[in-house]
Nucleic acid binder design. Structure first.
Lengths: 151, 151
DNA sequence: TCTGAAAAAACTTCCGG
DNA sequence: CCGGAAGTTTTTTCAGA
């Protein structure tokens, strides 16, 4: 799928504020409703535009602890990995999980109500799957958080 | 602000799919349009519900590299920190930035088109502010990514 | 506070340049 | 493929219970 300059402008608007009206988007990209609507529809179908979500205020809802978890493992078998990935995807506290290149094998971002809740998560995880070494980094302050891409 | 059970159900819907109609949300939480609408308005005003965004497909748009950057610094003066934070907030490649407790001082999530673009970012950052030690972890695979809280 | 209806706005489709 | 106009759905407001 090829994305032109107008598409990029539309995406840029949508990833910043998806609640604005088609009219406003059309105005801001210098076009009108129909073409903008067709472009959005196409990009949705192509999977370029994913889900539309409301970002909630974690602290206001009592989620006051955020950990980045570095995981090293000795196990690299397919079966172990399948179990591990499933465990991560099933746990809602895990907001983000990446498989890494190099020394550290995985990094997780875990959002919980407090340190105790993290410990519960941690105990549950290591009882499900064996991991060699775990380092938890506790966030003191969220300096920046965005899902926007630098288009 | 106090959040009751119905509010939580509404939030749960919105953080998963903010494009659905008020009618659908009302149905799924067992209420009707007006009360749901009033609750959403209140939570927006209170800042519990933040921005509404479209999540884009990074890979489809050519952002094929994602790094987690661990930063250790010897500088802890207010002035240095102010400059550093501003640099992070001004750079759109930085999707996430946290100040940490302990050994590592900061963690960043940096999304770029390729490894070369990361190096450019890195060079620009260290020329702006002095940092003691930087470790970059390269993501090979995004296993999971959500902004949803485990309500 | 909720329900239901009415007004306003937005979305979606369709047709002429 | 774009732009404008028409029909449809949704959002938002408002009165009554």
């Amino acid at each position: 799928m090829k994305i032109d300059d107008t598409d990029l402008k539309i995406l840029s608007q949508l990833q910043t504020d998806a609640s604005q009206s088609l009219d406003d988007i059309a105005k801001s990209v210098g076009s009108s409703k129909t073409p903008v609507w067709n472009r959005i529809r196409k990009m949705r179908e192509a999977g370029v535009i994913g889900p539309q979500v409301a970002v909630l205020n974690a602290e206001a809802l009592g989620f006051e602890a955020c950990f980045f978890v570095l995981i090293r493992t000795s196990e690299h078998e397919a079966d172990w990995q399948r179990k591990f990935l499933k465990a991560l995807r099933d746990r809602p506290e895990v907001q983000e999980a990446h498989r890494l290149a190099g020394d550290v094998d995985y990094i997780l971002k875990v959002r919980v109500r407090n340190a105790r809740a993290y410990d519960e998560f941690y105990q549950a995880l290591i009882s499900e799957v064996k991991v060699h070494n775990v380092t938890a980094l506790l966030s003191m302050e969220e300096i920046k958080m965005t899902t926007a891409l630098p288009l």
